[in-house]
Write a protein that binds this DNA or RNA. Structure first.
Length: 595
RNA sequence: GGGGCGGUAGCUCAGCCGGUCAGAGCAGCGGACUCAUAAUCCGUAGGUCGUGGGUUCAAGUCCCACCCGCCCUACCA
């Protein structure tokens, strides 16, 4: 039975290139999941984009003497290239600065407003006296009123650890330009989160036993103290507020987090329009059988398990104040929130500013995308923070990808090509033959079950067991010693090639690039598992921008496909390059240099 | 300060509701083999499961306290 699966992937903030910690949290896991779901016959819509509004981008743009839009343009393209080169199979990776996104964000705001879940409130806030823009707490520093430390941030003192209110700082100053912030009364719109406490509570209770327990526990706990949350800022970079008297104001915009989470919906709608069926998105958002899986790092849980669901409930008219659905109709809440822990780097936190960082593009300039994907799948931060080390990377690559899987492909195809030049016919099968074939077929259900639960580590380990079994099988059968029994050699190699073919299918979600190679080596025609590409598109004659998209309806399906005897085989070339152990030292030196 | 998560063999990590859970993969040691990118296969692991208490017939597995690390704490996104 084919199901509609929405894979909603966290939106990277467009203030720099992505590092491998970012893609280990939201990128690779969401792609493994989506590729599997497509192979299993489901209709996947995988969407994301760059998140481009907000103060940090404005500040960085000012610093560089460019406009916020120019900075966002630059990093939107850089990030799209990072994600494409990793083979992440987005149906649409767009951005938050499109006219479509503006209009959908405004529609959600209006729906919430009409149902009474958004209200204005005058608050005290810091702004820059020269620009009039909101100055977020952490852009303010001064002397801590508690311990007297001079470098305290507006939200917290790094010295004594106390939480602060910026208005209490002694000699407050802006970290952007050193000026003294002005504390003014300013009117903002608030999202009435307390009105959703009950609705969110019963929704979350229904996820018991389904979600990862840490996400659920964390989310339920937050319900105890829901407060209204501001959804607008004093800023000119963002989505205008769609109400009379506000629409044309140049100093008020929707707060970036509010428009960013709406991206999942607006990107789905943009995808549908580009696909020529403008209403197609409704299959993923309004069909009761559809499921929505959201992928993110642990720092983003609250937005996906609390705030975005609250926004959807409010738009649907399902909070404490009731109401009616907005013009788009009722929208579905997340089915599952899949969050990752953090990847650290040689024992330290990733930090671009402190040069503790490995950028995706630098990594992929020197190593295979599948090597990184494999590392993240097998040793990534799925259940707890995990540490990336170069020596572990080299070990995994050489010991598992090259020595176990690459070698199995190589030895099997090599023997068959050398002796027969084609996939040989199997004769009568022995118990050992049948046992291995059965083991491999059974793996589809086992690995699939793990993937459906987003247990990627278990899944890839299970798939690799088949590879190890096959190497064991060849060692036991010793076809190279059976020169006087060609019929038996044919059977053994037939079985071995069948397992190679099965394993390439099982590994496709994790290692799509190399599985495509194995598919071709075994005589497969056309595309096995599609890869993403960047296309420049425009919107109503507007400025072109890059999106990631692709055709992913390849031949790949989640089942054992019999190899065809007689298929010509050429001597194989190695699937993965073996890495010299010197790269560990080279990379560590690079880190020390800050290169 | 409050909340959440984690601290398991040299390394990176699995261990859901308590009772073959003390594990896997690397690395190490010994052996076999040669089809294959010196790859593969077999054998070999005595780690007080962060510390100290408690519950239980039985606790990495539940409870409490403490130590360490990470995340959130709603004006970073």
């Amino acid at each position: 039975m084919s199901q509609h699966i929405l894979t909603a992937v966290a939106w990277p903030y467009a203030n720099g290139p992505r590092h491998i910690g970012h893609v280990s949290g939201f990128g690779v896991p969401s792609d493994i999941f989506s590729r599997y779901q497509r192979m299993a016959g489901n209709k996947v819509l995988m969407v994301s984009g760059t998140d481009e509004h907000g103060t940090p981008i404005q500040v960085q743009a000012d610093r560089e003497g460019v406009t916020a839009r120019e900075l966002a343009d630059r990093y939107n393209r850089v990030i799209a290239e990072d994600l494409t080169s990793l083979g992440l199979s987005y149906d649409l990776f767009t951005r938050t600065t499109t006219a479509n996104h503006y209009s959908i964000s405004q529609e959600i705001f209006k729906g919430l407003f009409a149902n009474g879940y958004v209200f204005p409130r005058t608050t005290m806030g810091a702004v820059s006296p020269t620009t009039g823009r909101t100055l977020p707490d952490r852009y303010i520093e001064g002397t801590c009123p508690i311990c007297g430390y001079d470098g305290a941030r507006g939200d917290q003192c790094d010295n004594c650890g106390n939480q602060l209110d910026p208005i209490d700082l002694i000699n407050p100053r802006s970290r952007v330009n050193g000026e003294t912030p002005k504390f003014i009364e300013t009117e903002h719109f608030m999202l009435d989160l307390p009105a959703f406490t009950e609705a969110l509570g019963s929704w979350l209770q229904g996820k018991q036993g389904d979600w990862r327990p840490n996400v659920l526990k964390f989310s339920l706990n937050l319900l105890g103290d829901m407060q209204p949350r501001a959804i607008s800022r004093d800023l000119d970079w963002g989505v205008p507020i769609p109400l009379d008297g506000w629409r044309d104001r140049n100093d008020k915009r929707l707060y970036v987090w509010f428009d960013a989470v709406i991206g999942y919906l607006s990107a789905s709608i943009e995808w549908a329009r580009r696909s020529g069926e403008p209403d197609a998105w409704r299959q993923w958002w309004q069909n009761p059988d559809a499921r929505g899986y959201y992928f993110m790092g642990k720092d983003n849980i609250v937005f996906h398990s609390e705030i975005w669901p609250a926004m959807l409930l409010g738009y649907n008219g399902e909070g404490a104040r009731g109401g009616t659905p907005g013009s788009l109709g009722k929208l579905a809440l997340p089915s599952e929130v899949v969050s990752s822990e953090f990847l650290t780097m040689e024992g330290r936190k990733f930090s671009s500013s402190r040069q503790v960082v490995i950028y995706v593009r630098d990594f992929l300039a020197r190593y295979d995308a599948d090597a990184l994907r494999y590392y993240i799948a097998v040793a990534g931060p799925e259940n707890q923070d995990t540490d990336f080390t170069w020596s572990e990377f080299v070990n995994r690559n050489n010991g598992e990808l090259v020595a176990a899987w690459g070698n199995l492909v190589n030895r099997s195809i090599s023997m068959a090509a050398k002796n027969f030049g084609e996939v040989p016919e199997a004769g009568e099968l022995t118990d050992a033959d049948r046992a291995l074939l059965a083991r491999s077929r059974a793996a589809f259900a086992a690995v699939g079950a793990e993937l459906e639960r987003s247990r990627f580590k278990n899944a890839v380990t299970e798939a690799f067991e088949v590879v190890r079994e096959a190497n064991r099988y060849l060692a036991e059968q010793e076809p190279w010693k059976l020169k006087d029994d060609p019929a038996r050699v044919k059977s053994i190699l037939h079985v071995a090639l069948q397992i190679v073919d099965d394993a390439k299918t099982l590994l496709t979600p994790f290692l799509p690039g190399s599985s495509n190679k194995v598919y071709a080596m075994l005589g497969g025609k056309g595309v096995w598992s599609g890869m993403p590409e960047i296309r420049d598109v425009d919107e109503d004659g507007g400025k072109p921008y890059p999106v990631i998209t692709g055709e992913y309806d390849g031949a790949a399906t989640w089942q054992s496909i019999p190899v065809r005897p007689g298929t010509p085989l050429a001597p194989p070339t190695p699937l993965f390059p073996k890495l010299d152990s010197k790269v560990v030292d080279e990379e560590l030196a690079r880190l020390a240099d800050g290169r």
